[in-house]
Amino acid sequence: MPPLAEIAQLVTLFAAAFGAATFLPFQSEVVFVALQLAGEIGLPALIVVASIGNTLGAVVNYVMGRWIEHFRHRRWFPATEAQLERAQRWYGRWGVWTLLLSWAPFGDPITLVAGLMRTRFALFLALVTLAKTGRFVALAWITSQAGG
């Protein structure tokens, strides 16, 4: 495959992984598995690109969480005071370790709450990177097992 085509596929994977980690309706798994099965790009490159994209998408949620309280009392704000307080209590109870669940479909709000709760960014980044990379490593393994 020409290098330009590989770059285009990796950019597509990055964009899908990035979008999937935000509140946008993206599915990075489909793109990842399709590229893995095509076998034209090495698996380590797929895992690294998908993990970086997915982690950076979670960073967007974190940054949104850091600034969300500035808009808390606006009429258009998407969460009620009770919902925000419940999210803060939940995160306060379970702590930063919930970021290890950021790989899951329900993980996007956790990354936003981490920003809201002012989690240290280095700790946030380490836990989310571990979770997101683990997700793509597991997906690659499952795909390789299913594909023979």
Rank of each mutant, 00 (worst) to 15 (best):
M1A: 15
P2N: 14
P3L: 10
A5R: 14
E6I: 09
E6R: 13
I7E: 13
I7H: 08
L10R: 02
L10Q: 05
V11M: 10
V11H: 02
T12Q: 12
A15F: 10
A17I: 06
G19W: 10
G19H: 08
A21L: 07
A21Y: 03
A21E: 06
L24C: 09
P25N: 08
F26A: 14
E29M: 04
E29H: 03
E29L: 03
V30I: 15
V31C: 05
A34L: 11
L35V: 01
L37H: 04
G42H: 06
P44M: 06
L46F: 05
V48M: 00
V48R: 04
S51C: 07
S51Y: 07
I52E: 04
G53N: 04
N54I: 04
T55G: 02
A58W: 00
V59W: 03
Y62H: 00
Y62E: 01
V63H: 02
M64R: 02
G65I: 07
I68H: 07
E69R: 12
H70F: 08
F71G: 11
F71L: 11
R72V: 12
R72L: 14
R72Y: 14
R72D: 15
R74Y: 06
R75C: 08
R75E: 15
W76L: 09
F77I: 07
F77R: 07
A79G: 06
E81P: 14
A82I: 10
Q83V: 11
E85Y: 01
R86I: 00
A87L: 13
A87G: 14
Q88V: 14
Q88E: 15
W90A: 12
W90S: 13
W90V: 12
G95C: 04
W97C: 06
T98I: 13
T98W: 03
L99P: 04
L100W: 00
L100H: 01
L101Q: 09
S102F: 06
S102T: 05
S102C: 00
W103K: 06
A104G: 11
G107C: 08
G107F: 09
P109N: 02
I110V: 14
T111I: 07
L112G: 09
L112Y: 09
V113T: 15
V113S: 11
V113P: 14
L116P: 08
A122N: 11
L123A: 13
L125S: 05
L127Y: 11
T129C: 09
T133K: 06
T133R: 00
F136I: 00
V137S: 05
V137I: 15
A140Y: 05
W141G: 09
I142Y: 07
I142G: 04
S144L: 13
Q145T: 11
G147L: 12
G147Q: 13
G148P: 12
G148A: 15
G148N: 10
G148L: 14
